[in-house]
Design a protein around this nucleic acid. Structure first.
Lengths: 150, 150
DNA sequence: GTGCTAAGTTAGTAGGGCCTAACTTCGGGG
DNA sequence: CCCCGAAGTTAGGCCCTACTAACTTAGCAC
């Protein structure tokens, strides 16, 4: 079975917390997701059954090797999407963050690969100096004017 | 309450069926989603409670004005994403279809607006002739070679 | 070492999505 | 006209997500 979107989200958060503090806590995960601790406990149960993390009763949460890999996969997708949204589409930070959090669960490997490549190609390659960004923003502004008028 | 992803999917399919045939049938919706008719009946119940569609017992399904608007919103998001995936990222048809089907439920209005604009800007504007597509594909091929080697 | 508080856990509720199995209804062919 | 098959519906079950409320445990303060 594949992981559900919430399961991937929790795993991702645990990955971040492990990086920051060496381990994660139920209350911290719950706080970051705006969810009750009971909900997190339930989610952890199935992640444990899948051998993605370890947690002694009432103790700290750490990722197994397998869980670490899964968490990093989600984090990588998230980072790639975020970079694309900001660096290519020019979406503002908070919106990019929210969208990346949701889309990361759905995007196929093929599309992700192209998305990463396009970001490198357009936003960091030789084209980055070509001011296509500026021209695009002007194009957007014009469209919005038309939308407001028509 | 907002619609869930499956609810939006069913609504979208009903929208297409209404366009094609003037009305939708439970069996046809179920077939297109690879799901049992019982599942569709359950989903229709909540969509009816939300006043998005009408269906006399054992009868044909039609959208209310409100349901029509909701269905068109989903279809528009889908179409925009598909056009972007194919026209800008160069993703193949079936993959673009699958990704659009999933991402359409998650993308924010702000991001969608920019995505549509970038597609128009890059794939249909003056830049369309500039062979950035060709250069991007070559860039992609190079990257893949490096990935396979490293 | 005794409590108190914060953290974690469990139980029970609610709703959604999916299934199968059993049923009702509809509509056309004999 | 009757009956059969196809379409729709209902009932019941399973799993997931989330909640609140009640509980246990852990760890620090005194």
């Amino acid at each position: 079975m594949e992981l559900s979107a919430p399961q991937e989200d929790y795993l991702e958060t645990i990955g971040h917390l492990c990086r920051e503090n060496g381990a994660a806590r139920v209350s911290e995960i719950a706080a970051r997701h705006g969810v009750s601790t009971a909900t997190v406990v339930g989610a952890l149960r199935s992640l444990k059954q899948r051998n993605l993390l370890c947690q002694p009763p009432y103790g700290q949460i750490t990722l197994t090797r397998e869980g670490q890999a899964a968490a990093e996969s989600v984090m990588a997708r998230h980072a790639a999407l975020h970079a694309f949204l900001v660096g290519v589409l020019g979406v503002d930070g908070p919106t990019a963050e929210r969208d990346a959090c949701r889309i990361e669960h759905d995007v196929s490997p093929a599309t992700l690969r192209r998305l990463i490549a396009l970001e490198r190609f357009l936003a960091r390659g030789p084209w980055a100096d070509l001011d296509w960004r500026g021209e695009f923003e002007r194009f957007l502004a014009t469209e919005e004017q038309q939308g407001a008028t028509g």
